[in-house]
Computed example of a mutant assay.
Amino acid sequence: MLKKLVNIVIFVPLGILLIVLSVANRQTVTLAINPFDTADRMLSVSAPFFVFLFLAAILGLVLGAAVTWFAQGKYRRRARNEASEAMKWHREAEKHRSQAEKLAAQTTLPSPQN
């Protein structure tokens, strides 16, 4: 319930803001990639301004996610190593437990008969 409320409080205003930005920035702009000759049509893109805004936001999200992914790689590697080590020790414990059960079954003394 709290998660839905937080989503509504955050995402509804954000969606409204994005719609307002899209409507307010419909004019066509040209992004010139060639810094020396801005009139070069081969290295320029014309689109509504909100498209460039959305592409910049998406690029920022993707780059941020990639940086976070690579920064946390050492923790994922450590978790994998510790999980494999835990499984190794679990198998070792099971092996010793079965050996102890076999030994206990072999050394069981017969009950004294009266």
Rank of each mutant, 00 (worst) to 15 (best):
24 A>I: 08
83 A>H: 09
24 A>G: 06
51 V>C: 01
54 F>C: 01
55 L>M: 15
87 M>N: 11
104 A>V: 04
89 W>E: 06
34 N>W: 01
105 A>D: 12
47 A>S: 09
83 A>M: 08
77 R>F: 05
18 L>Y: 00
63 L>A: 15
83 A>D: 06
67 V>N: 02
41 R>L: 06
9 V>L: 15
27 Q>P: 00
103 L>K: 11
67 V>I: 15
84 S>L: 06
43 L>G: 01
90 H>G: 05
9 V>A: 15
71 A>V: 13
102 K>S: 12
87 M>A: 11
11 F>L: 13
28 T>H: 06
27 Q>H: 14
11 F>S: 07
111 S>T: 11
86 A>L: 12
60 G>R: 03
1 M>G: 03
70 F>R: 15
27 Q>R: 12
6 V>N: 03
31 L>I: 04
108 T>Q: 13
24 A>E: 09
8 I>A: 08
39 A>D: 09
16 I>G: 04
78 R>L: 15
73 G>R: 14
81 N>C: 03
5 L>A: 10
105 A>F: 05
72 Q>N: 14
16 I>H: 01
113 Q>C: 04
48 P>S: 02
57 A>C: 14
34 N>Y: 01
87 M>W: 03
108 T>E: 12
58 I>N: 09
40 D>M: 03
22 S>L: 01
84 S>W: 03
97 R>S: 10
40 D>I: 04
38 T>E: 10
46 S>D: 06
69 W>R: 11
79 A>R: 14
71 A>K: 13
25 N>Q: 10
15 G>C: 05
75 Y>A: 15
86 A>Y: 08
8 I>F: 05
88 K>P: 00
49 F>W: 07
15 G>S: 13
30 T>R: 04
52 F>C: 00
96 H>P: 00
35 P>D: 02
55 L>D: 10
42 M>V: 08
33 I>V: 11
73 G>I: 01
106 Q>F: 10
96 H>K: 12
68 T>R: 13
62 V>L: 15
106 Q>I: 10
57 A>Q: 11
6 V>K: 07
40 D>A: 05
42 M>L: 11
